[in-house]
Nucleic acid binder design. Structure first.
Length: 722
DNA sequence: GACCTGCTGCGGCGTG
């Protein structure tokens, strides 16, 4: 029987009404799997590839075909990372279900309480919900979970790749485990994704205890042709009005993108505003209607929706200068070209961004990468001479072309999210045993890297009288403590990630700008802002103001601000690019020259055949050839041995003036596995939402499991000396 | 050396 014939009559009718002559390949394949088995499934295809239909046409057919007794509960559950995405998908599903008695129920923070309470009384149809709202259901309506979800035939997770990493993904996995435990049976899981670097990781995410049973449907041959250019620019070093590179890039964008829809990723909100402003005035000077608009999270919802609607409107040419706000799958239609100014932080993001272009049959995807490098003088620093930004841009493009992208670090403890889930389960059940928590979270759930000892240490910490997140009842049951009760009561509890407050940074009565602050700050500590170190004089928490003065030689923070995390593979690729001679064809004349330049400096410094280079005045450069995690670990170790350390992509620079140890001796010691304490006193380890409740010991464990890699030290050090 | 994501319950008031 063909895939089409397996679908329910009303679904077939809808397909015909759309004028489709047949199902797309991925839709036919997933229909066969969904209607022919009860297996989990991942559907990977580009944004316009029809993934939603691939999952829901057969799932709706299955629901309509099931005429057994009427049970209570939603038939299908869709989980999406964005409210806007849920709104888009609600419309699409409503359209499919126009002539069918299957309610579509969007459920997130902007949905009115009346719709929610109606759905809660008589749950049926398709629920579309965010992880946070699902979390809220577990906490507020713990006892009704079986009533709400007992009937669920499948959970569809949209944009699966956004959940693979970090806090929110761990939270969702934990919720899925808890859902299955609450209704005492597994529920089929279906993941939809555009960007997947490693399909096996996605399988493990979707069904950790049986990844090999997860079926996959991957769109084939649909990859559009890619047109690619990397243009090089030399900065005049003028930070203010007229940096030559900014002016030139804006002009190039104006001349080449005008008249069509495009996305310009500028890296930070400040740069988004800067480029949007330049492009706006270029339009004005030419007496042309406005078509370049900024888009980032600080702009009002109205403005953002206006830009999104304009992008969707084929009649109005529109280019959005944006941050990662326009990276995910909200519906803005196809764009002609994606521009990236400066290197992106991950290949995964670059891939996701590029996926916005070239989605129409026969149209190429177009990537315009702009690299800005400084003008060199006789005193130029080794890291500037090596043109690390340009080299990283090339490395990331090369890895993109190979289809590689970053994978999350396995075995991270995720203690902040663990604290959250402990409180959530206690709230859901009104109290529970330590044993049950351990089984739910660590044995069955996503915290498999947390052993019984660490788990107990966390429980004991949360139960301390000065922490008071949990307490033990007379029967040994764990209950919420005084502070825990307060935390869980407030609606801000549901999200597992931190939202930093924006503080105004003020020096001598002059505002330097605003800074999102997620770490704990205090007077006398230093912070990094607009490329400089500042000592904190005073913090006004109520008015969100930080008074600062320029720091002399204050201790630099353990991890500078919101440090990017560059993968080992990216740095390896950078090394290959330094060591080769060929010039990639997609480089323009300036970029080619800069690359030749960088390679010459690389050889002149001697990095071609050694990894330790004396720079003079007790300064030494080390070529580590590894990513941020290992680089930071080594930097901390050497700092503990008295060196001053600066980090760059794949390199560090040491200043040994204040220590008697030589670089060689220090490395020999590390190679011998004599590791100093990586954590200096008073070092800040608070980055995630529930970190403030953990002990220093637990925070160090957490950091070692995700941000640092102490085990790599001896090998790294011995490679350097040999 | 950066960006992004999310949020309940209830009191008070007006209207039909």
């Amino acid at each position: 029987m063909s895939a089409f014939d397996q679908l329910a009559r009303p679904v077939q009718k809808w397909i015909r009404s759309r004028g489709w002559s047949e199902l797309r390949d991925i839709q036919a394949r997933s229909t066969n799997i969904i209607l022919g088995s009860d297996k989990d499934l991942i559907v990977a295809a580009s944004t316009a590839g029809g993934k939603t239909e691939a999952a829901f046409l057969p799932l709706i057919s299955q629901v309509l075909g099931d005429e057994t007794e009427v049970r209570s509960g939603f038939d299908l559950v869709y989980i999406g990372p964005l409210k806007a995405l849920i709104n888009d998908q609600t419309k699409r599903l409503e359209d499919i279900c126009t002539d069918v008695d299957l309610p579509i129920v969007p459920w997130h923070g902007d949905i009115s309480a009346s719709i929610k309470s109606r759905a809660e009384k008589r749950p049926r149809g398709i629920l579309l919900i965010t992880p946070e709202s699902l979390e809220a259901l577990f906490i507020r309506k713990g006892a009704s979970i079986p009533h709400l979800f007992g009937n669920a035939k499948a959970v569809v997770i949209d944009e699966l790749h956004t959940f693979l990493d970090a806090e929110r993904g761990v939270q969702l996995r934990s919720l899925l485990t808890r859902l299955e435990l609450a209704i005492s049976r597994p529920v089929r899981r279906i993941g939809l994704s555009a960007t997947l670097g490693d399909i096996n990781l996605a399988r493990t995410y979707l069904r950790p205890d049986a990844p090999n049973d997860v079926e996959t449907v991957i769109a084939e041959g649909g990859e559009a042709e890619l047109l690619l250019q990397l243009r090089g620019y030399i900065s005049s070093g003028d930070d203010n009005e007229g940096d030559a590179a900014t002016t030139e890039i804006a002009k190039h964008l104006f001349e080449n993108l005008r008249g069509s829809d495009n996305l310009i990723f500028a890296g930070s909100r400040g740069r988004v505003e800067e480029f949007a402003d330049r492009l706006r005035s270029l339009c004005e000077q030419a007496h042309l209607p406005q078509e370049f608009y900024p888009h980032h999270a600080s702009l009002s919802k109205d403005h953002r929706e206006f830009v999104e609607a304009r992008l969707k409107d084929d009649a109005l040419p529109t280019s959005a200068v944006c941050t990662s706000t326009l990276e995910l799958g909200i519906d803005i239609g196809d764009v002609k070209c994606v521009a990236q100014i400066g290197p992106p932080f991950t290949v995964a993001a670059l891939r996701q961004r590029l996926g916005r272009s070239g989605r129409r049959e026969g149209e190429p995807a177009i990537l315009r990468q702009y690299a800005i490098e400084g003008r060199l003088d006789a005193n130029a620093h080794f890291s500037d001479r090596l043109r690390l930004g340009l080299i990283r841009s090339i490395a990331m493009i090369e890895l993109l072309l190979k289809g590689w992208c970053e994978a999350p670090r396995p075995n991270a403890l995720q203690l902040s999210t663990l604290v959250h889930q402990i409180l959530s389960i206690i709230a859901e059940r009104g109290g529970t045993s330590a044993k049950r928590l351990y089984v739910t979270l660590c044995e069955r759930g996503p915290f498999s890297a947390v052993g019984p000892e660490t788990f107990l240490a966390v429980l004991r910490q949360l139960g301390r009288s000065d922490i008071a997140l949990i307490e033990q009842g007379e029967d040994g049951f764990l209950l919420l403590g005084r502070v825990g009760e307060k935390l869980v009561e407030h609606y801000s509890f549901y999200a597992v990630f931190n939202t930093p407050d924006e503080y105004r940074i003020v020096h001598d009565g002059r505002e330097l700008g605003t800074l999102p602050v997620s770490q704990v700050l205090a007077p006398k500590l230093t912070l990094i802002f607009s490329g400089r170190r500042w000592e904190i004089l005073e913090i006004d928490d109520r008015d969100k103001v930080i008074l600062v003065k320029p720091a002399r030689a204050g201790k630099p923070p353990l991890f500078g601000g919101d440090a990017g995390n560059i993968d080992d593979r990216v740095i390896e690729k950078m090394r290959e690019i330094f060591e080769q001679d060929d010039i990639p064809r997609y480089l323009d004349a300036v970029a080619s020259e800069l690359l030749v330049d960088a390679r010459t400096s690389f050889r002149n410094f001697g990095f071609a055949n050694k990894r330790i280079v004396e720079l003079g005045e007790s300064r030494t450069a080390l070529a580590l050839w590894c990513g941020s995690v290992k680089t930071t670990t080594l930097a901390l170790a050497l700092r503990a041995m008295g060196f001053k350390v600066e980090q760059y992509d794949g390199f560090i620079e040491l200043d040994g003036r204040e220590t008697d140890t030589t670089v060689a001796a220090a490395l020999a010691q590390l190679a011998d596995d004599v590791s100093p304490n990586l954590f200096p006193e008073n070092s800040n380890l608070i980055f995630e939402k529930f970190h403030p409740y953990l002990s220093t010991e637990l925070l160090q464990l957490d950091a070692l499991s995700s941000r640092l890699d102490a085990k790599s030290l001896p090998e790294l050090a011995s490679n350097l000396v040999s």
